[in-house]
Design a protein around this nucleic acid. Structure first.
Length: 174
DNA sequence: GCCAACGTTGGC
DNA sequence: GCCAACGTTGGC
């Protein structure tokens, strides 16, 4: 058997790597926050939308690529990439009344909300703004640009993954 | 700060 | 199960 040369985490059942876009308000949690974490890794808590929850719980897998997007910020942009390092597990911040995203419906026995762990892969040399995304044939179709697009966890196609890296002038590491 | 789009809640 | 009212998101 030849040695694997990539450092990519293997996905379950040889499932191909999927790609996602995670939104975060930069004031609340920016890519610099992630870069400053121990092991540059964090748990992605606070998602309180069922469609996004389903993706975190069922579809997002270790080794998957994540675009880090700053919403409600200046600039509005994809600012870098991360990789998923832990698959969906219960979001414990829903259990704690002290937490902003506390939800009494969710319990340890029957958790409503889920999160994954992600680790920083790269910060782009320059933020890839919505304007830049609109100018490119491939990326202009991304969900994040769609009118009224509020989903905080969004699927990204492999073509979009490549195209954003091309705009950024960065070689995809995933 | 405005407001359109969206998701959730709750009365019926 | 419908749908109006409401709260939130998030671009502009």
């Amino acid at each position: 058997m030849p040695k694997k040369t990539t450092n990519r985490k293997k996905s379950p059942a040889n499932r191909p790597v999927h790609f996602w876009l995670f939104k975060s308000e930069a004031d609340c949690y920016s890519i610099n926050h992630l870069a400053g974490e121990r092991k540059q890794t964090t748990f992605w808590d606070g998602v309180r939308n069922y469609q996004a929850r389903n993706m975190l719980r069922d579809e997002v897998q270790p080794g998957d690529g994540v675009f880090f997007y700053h919403s409600n910020s200046d600039p509005l942009a994809i600012v870098g990439t991360a990789q998923v390092v832990k698959a969906g597990y219960p979001d414990h911040t829903a259990f704690d009344p002290q937490e902003k995203h506390f939800d009494p419906k969710s319990s340890t026995e029957n958790p409503t909300w889920y999160m994954v762990d992600i680790q920083l892969v790269s910060q782009f040399p320059e933020p890839i703004t919505r304007e830049m995304l609109r100018e490119d044939q491939v990326t202009s179709g991304m969900m994040v640009l769609a009118r009224g697009s509020r989903l905080s966890i969004q699927p990204v196609t492999p073509e979009e993954w490549k195209a954003v890296h091309k705009i950024a002038g960065v070689k995809p590491q995933l």
